[in-house]
Design a protein around this nucleic acid. Structure first.
Lengths: 349, 349
DNA sequence: TTGTACGCGTTATCAG
DNA sequence: CTGATAACGCGTACAA
């Protein structure tokens, strides 16, 4: 039924005593081939399950119909949702997807990008690692014409399309919710300030405080340089916060991992949520559902981010004329409130 | 520094006034080339950052140095761990990895496999979908010589290497733990009986009951045909169980999703774990850590499964002589006990 | 309307 | 030791 040992155009040509080019043209429905021959050829091809060899095609056409993805880890709900979104579009447009992981290492990021270009991908979708502050390696590739779209963790040093969650608004609304619920001393445990999402979220948090007339307190902001992968980072942050004179009455966390780790620590310390300490975190896992009601969460539209990113990338790849206008899309997040006695509410920002 | 517009062997040849073949041989360190020319060529190549075009190489050598992966969803801790394991080996051996998802659909599975073969992968790593009972499409490919390694959800209709978690023992030990803790009426919420892991786990569960002299009760076993993706499936199972005359005092669940969903439902119903109802589940998420101590979990060695599977696949691909002996590896699971007052214990099965 | 010839970048074979 | 030539499968000028 299906063919592993594939047949080639040549096979069809000899079998039908035609020339290779005639067959090739017939298969691509060229107008310079008679309907009769077309029919014979396509029928034979169909019957013998002919598929053009994508490798030969690539070599000939100078493209590989494959695109590279660079994320920190796929072992992360947000990124796997993004990847689902990417694939949903990519496959339907005949593109292949190669996924690579940086594990938050700058070195691995550079290496992956190198490998992807050696594999001659037609374009790259990338979310920068926490360690990355220098984007020269990407800049030079971009200058040489490699289509790149950034998502989630972006840089403003390169002019191209970008897709992010609306982190500023998400953080703003989330913090505002805590403030409206009566919390005054809101701490913020976040990732490396290297990455854009950290800054965007910090700004949203600060803006909400400012608007409520509460002074921004540097000591309430704790950075986890490894994004919470290292449990001790979060533990230290927590200990610092709990030892403060003006101990916070709420914690706003970023990233799935920091959120779950903070939750775990609070539970281990037998600190009741949200009575003793409210918890609000960015999270894309079902965790929050399972734990209903202690913490509120901010959900990022991973799937949509992926879809938008790949669509933009393909439009760059396939556009004949160079693109001059680049767009940065910020997709709305969703706030799920679970720390009040009211039933779960759902708002979109 | 890095080159996107790659230079070719031809470029080197003309630049050094050598022939293409000489350069090619020099680069592959052939013994029929003088050390002097080798040095000149490699130095020039190095300096101009020459990389062989993998597409041309593939066309010539008839392989693609890429392997296909088929899983249900990457949005699943277990599978992303497997993929991490696969990648850790694949990239170091110069292989590329193409990940596809079935979303538990037979149709999508067949389609993905088709696409992978069209993309001329050198081999396939696959974990069957819950819907799959017919493996003819794989059988014919395997007969035609496509290297295949099964992992996790396997079939015994095809003779090749297979890698699984030791589901039988994992389920056996887990059930035994519940029995030893004094639970007598242990229910089992599991996935589709189509897939191997369901049967293996059911057997381990039944064996533990038998050994404890407890009769196997068909009514205590509930199947979720969609693997818990559909929350109503789990809800129905739970309702059935709770309505029974001899209501179970413990539930043994399989798969991350069923476990978390069951947990969620128990919490919503305000049923205390483990006092009113003990919960034991296969789980690879951090969920269990965060929820310490209500439920015990059985952890599957995803990373190792991935590593073993890809190593076997590469050995098939690269072996000159056809392989006659095929192996099925069952890697030990880990039981994490959290439903007793004793500190978290860790045993390996 | 069909066929011929060439090139994509690489390696392998054979000749010099 | 080095170079010319063919071939992998496909597409496309150009010729017939």
């Amino acid at each position: 039924m299906m063919n592993f040992e594939a047949i080639t155009i040549k096979d069809i040509a000899t079998a039908l005593s035609l020339s290779v080019s005639t067959v090739s043209k017939a298969l691509s429905d060229s107008h310079e081939i008679s309907e009769k021959t077309k029919k014979i050829v396509t029928e034979y091809a169909e019957k013998h399950n002919y598929r053009p060899n994508p490798i030969a095609k690539s070599l000939k056409q100078g493209n590989s119909k494959s695109i590279g993805i660079v994320v920190s880890t796929i072992d992360n709900q947000f990124f796997s949702q993004v990847i689902n979104g990417i694939e949903s579009v990519a496959y339907s447009k005949g593109y292949n997807v190669i996924i690579t992981q940086t594990h938050e290492s700058f070195e691995l990021e550079a290496l992956n990008i190198k490998h992807l270009t050696y594999r001659s991908v037609d374009g790259i979708l990338i979310s920068l690692s926490t360690e990355t502050s220098d984007v020269e390696h990407l800049k030079s590739l971009h200058k040489k014409g490699l289509p790149i779209v950034f998502f989630d963790r972006i840089t403003d040093e390169i002019d191209t399309h970008k897709v992010i969650a609306d982190n500023f608004n998400g953080a703003f609304e989330g913090t505002q919710h805590l403030l409206n619920s009566g919390y005054k001393r809101i701490a913020h445990i976040t990732s490396s300030p290297n990455i854009s999402i950290t800054r965007e979220r910090l700004n949203g948090y600060a803006k909400a405080l400012e608007q409520a007339g509460i002074e921004f307190n540097e000591d309430y902001v704790k950075y986890c340089m490894h994004g919470g992968r290292d449990i001790d980072e979060v533990k230290n942050a927590m200990n610092d916060l709990l030892a403060m004179d003006k101990r916070p009455d709420a914690i706003f966390t970023t990233s799935d991992r920091i959120t779950t780790t903070t939750l775990l620590l609070l539970q281990k310390m037998k600190i009741r949520i949200p009575d003793e300490m409210a918890l609000l975190g960015f999270s894309n896992t079902q965790l929050a559902d399972a734990l209903n009601p202690p913490l509120s969460t901010i959900y990022q539209p991973g799937f949509e981010i992926g879809k938008n990113a790949i669509e933009m990338l393909i439009s760059i790849i396939e556009s004949k004329n160079p693109i001059t206008e680049f767009e940065t899309r910020a997709l709305p997040t969703q706030l799920f409130i679970r720390d009040s006695s009211s039933p779960v509410k759902k708002r979109s920002s």
